[in-house]
């Protein structure tokens, strides 16, 4: 039974394929998000904020399901790179921004009370831990032998997709989530984001400069008309470099202007 998109070696067609595992994950995510946002007191109702979160859930669904998920898992490394950028750099901040303010306040109170789970959350979302974990997972999930092995199996492809979402949330937590409070403030977040660009920029350069295709799973996939393996890889490298860089620079710019506005308001 096919429950998750993986490389199958079958020729690409535009025939719709079903992936129950993707639907289950998205349904669980939507259920969790609905529970977070339902029955909020009037002062904690912010439809704009809720929409941001729901857009995050929807984008995750689009990225994992047919056709994007299928193409990214077994046909085009450029689509795989786009999936990575969107799952790790765009959807996590959307999900975090969509959480109602009252829920964050509730989480802050739980963290103050102490206990094992709050302690783990505090450690995991510490910028150093989150940044290192994110970059390590990004690096390992781009090593050719790892990609070639994992993407050929449904469980492996699921592990890659899920890991990107999970470490993406971890990575953006110190920047977007208001709890636990951080000492570095906005300048610290800017430095954190800047340092975070190193690995994926290096990966993008490596894809762009490699003389031959680095991932067997995409090089040997049944070809899709008009796209050579090297052109596809160059596109992937370009996406990692340009789009990845632009996303981080965009986030840094937002933080910078917010910081500047706060400084102006200071008496």
């Amino acid at each position: 039974m096919t429950w998750w998109c993986s490389a199958t070696g079958e020729a690409w067609t535009w025939t719709w394929r079903t992936y129950p595992g993707v639907w289950l994950l998205v349904a669980l995510l939507a259920l969790g998000y609905w529970r977070l946002t339902r029955r909020r007191p009037a002062e904690d109702r912010d439809p704009g904020r809720a929409w941001v979160g729901w857009i995050g859930v929807l984008v995750i669904w689009v990225m994992l399901d047919w056709p994007v998920g299928t193409l990214g898992a077994g046909y085009l490394v450029s689509v795989h790179a786009a999936q990575f950028l969107i799952l790790a750099f765009i959807t996590p901040p959307l999900l975090l921004l969509g959480v109602p303010a009252g829920r964050w306040a509730g989480l802050a109170r739980r963290l103050d009370r102490g206990g094992a789970l709050p302690a783990i959350l505090k450690v995991a979302t510490h910028p150093v831990v989150a940044g290192v974990t994110f970059n390590l997972v990004v690096l390992v999930t781009h090593v050719p032998s790892v990609v070639d092995r994992l993407m050929a199996q449904q469980l492996g492809a699921f592990a890659v997709d899920f890991a990107w979402i999970l470490v993406g949330i971890l990575f953006w937590w110190p920047v977007v989530a208001p709890v636990p409070p951080r000492r570095g403030g906005i300048p610290g977040s800017i430095l954190y984001l800047f340092l975070a660009t190193v690995i994926h920029t290096a990966l993008g350069m490596w894809l762009l400069l490699s003389r031959y295709p680095v991932y067997g799973v995409y090089e040997l996939a049944p070809p899709i008309e008009g796209r050579s393996a090297m052109a596809d890889q160059a596109m992937a490298g370009g996406l990692m470099e340009l789009v990845g860089g632009m996303l981080i620079i965009g986030a840094i710019a937002v933080l910078f202007f917010r910081w500047a506005a706060m400084e102006e308001q200071r008496p």
Binding site: L139, H142, V143, I199, W206, V214
Partner: peptide
């Protein structure tokens, strides 16, 4: 540590 990045990637390619 950064120099390990290309080394790790190259290692991942060299399974021939």
């Amino acid at each position: 540590a950064l120099a390990l990045v290309p080394a790790l990637l190259a290692l991942g390619c060299a399974d021939r």
